[in-house]
Design a protein around this nucleic acid. Structure first.
Length: 267
DNA sequence: ATGACTGTCTTTGACAGA
């Protein structure tokens, strides 16, 4: 089983690149974020034609999450369910989508694509919305699942968890996506029972990033951040193979500012 | 000159992204 996550920064602009990725890498499951389209405008057809089931949840011009799967989804979930204050997260349906599939040795495997809010300026209202989104997401998993359930939660978390996840920790301290509160919120989510696949395989690796600013020649200098993550529960951990960033898609003409992150499992 | 950002819509500038 091969799974991948990719913030495409507009599916309209990246439609062909996603098709190319599916043909080259052939993931069983692909999570997309920032599709930036209403569901009726999502280009389902090219992906369905090469054998993928596609579910999408999004709004006009911003946000938007999708899952592409070789296996047909049994159940689809959009946004938060069973949480204490779902009305406080009006855009949750554009930021979280999940499917239940059967296969890869699992009677029930849940797969989620998530796009955590960026947060704007640290300490702003939007920043606290981002932190609350993390807490609500954890509560969603606590109320809906057990850490013994096979779950893959992947997407753009807009947090670089540790110093080794950014190119210049001193320079970026206090910068959005790298503040202490955001990093705590990320690890609090992990405490549900999630494992960060990249760190399980490469605990000490430096310079492994998934996002590079479009400005300042950042990609060329590998001045990036590790903001995209594939999280898994324990039943999947023992089957984890390699995890890597497919940087080639950041070098193509008109790239997304994020590169795909891929995890392979021995099932 | 060895760098220059890229999407979207309320579109020809503002704004969000990170």
């Amino acid at each position: 089983m091969v799974v991948a996550t990719w913030n495409v920064n507009s599916i309209k602009v990246r439609k062909e690149q996603v098709l190319e990725f599916l043909k080259e890498v052939g993931p069983d499951l692909l999570a997309l974020q920032e599709t930036k389209v209403k569901t009726e405008d999502f280009p389902f057809k090219p992906y369905q034609e090469i054998g993928y089931h596609v579910v999408h949840s999004g709004g006009k011009g911003r946000n938007g999450v999708a899952l592409l799967s070789k296996v047909a989804p049994k159940i689809i979930k959009r946004g938060f369910e069973n949480t204490s204050e779902p009305e406080s997260f009006p855009d949750a349906e554009e930021r979280l989508i999940g499917i239940e599939v059967e296969g890869f040795g699992f009677a029930s495997l849940w797969v989620f694509s998530v796009y955590i809010p960026n947060g704007g300026q640290p300490e702003s209202d939007y920043y606290y919305y981002k932190l609350s989104f993390f807490w609500q997401l954890k509560e969603f998993f606590e109320k809906t699942f057990s850490p013994e359930d096979p779950i893959i939660l992947m997407g753009d978390f807009n947090v670089a968890p540790e110093d080794k996840d950014v190119f210049a920790p001193g320079l970026l301290e206090g910068h959005i996506c790298f503040t202490e509160k955001e990093r705590r919120a990320f690890f609090d989510l992990l405490s549900f029972g999630f494992y960060d696949t990249l760190r399980e395989k490469y605990p000490d690796a430096r310079g492994v990033f998934t996002w590079w600013d479009y400005q300042f020649g950042a990609f060329k200098k590998n001045q990036g951040m590790r903001l995209d993550h594939i999280l898994i529960t324990r039943p999947l951990l023992e089957k984890l193979g390699d995890v890597y960033v497919e940087k080639s898609f950041r070098t193509k003409p008109k790239p997304s500012d994020h590169a795909p992150l891929i995890a392979k499992f021995l099932v």
